[in-house]
């Protein structure tokens, strides 16, 4: 992903419940992909990290996947 996914799709608020979108930014182990690979702006990368962590807390995403 070269361009910021959230700006391109006009997503202003990254929601922790939107698991399908968040999954795009996880590697097979369930770890958050680095900003180098995601191509997100620093601000959106931080918001993404927060959203993923909230989703993990509520069991929507795994902390570790096999």
């Amino acid at each position: 992903m070269k361009q910021d996914y959230f700006s391109v799709n006009n997503i202003k608020y990254i929601d922790y419940k939107d698991v399908e979108i968040l999954k795009k930014f996880l590697n097979p182990n369930g770890r958050i992909v680095s900003h180098k690979r995601t191509g997100l702006t620093a601000k959106n990368q931080r918001a993404l990290a927060m959203a993923v962590k909230h989703a993990r807390f509520l069991g929507l995403l795994p902390f570790v996947a096999k």
Partner: peptide, 23 residues
């Protein structure tokens, strides 16, 4: 079992499905 209270915006924050299709 668990709960999470977050600050948010009043607008709908769940993106429509078309974003998935675009991708």
């Amino acid at each position: 079992v668990r709960f999470l209270i977050t600050k948010t915006v009043k607008e709908n924050t769940i993106a429509a499905k078309r974003f998935v299709r675009d991708d």
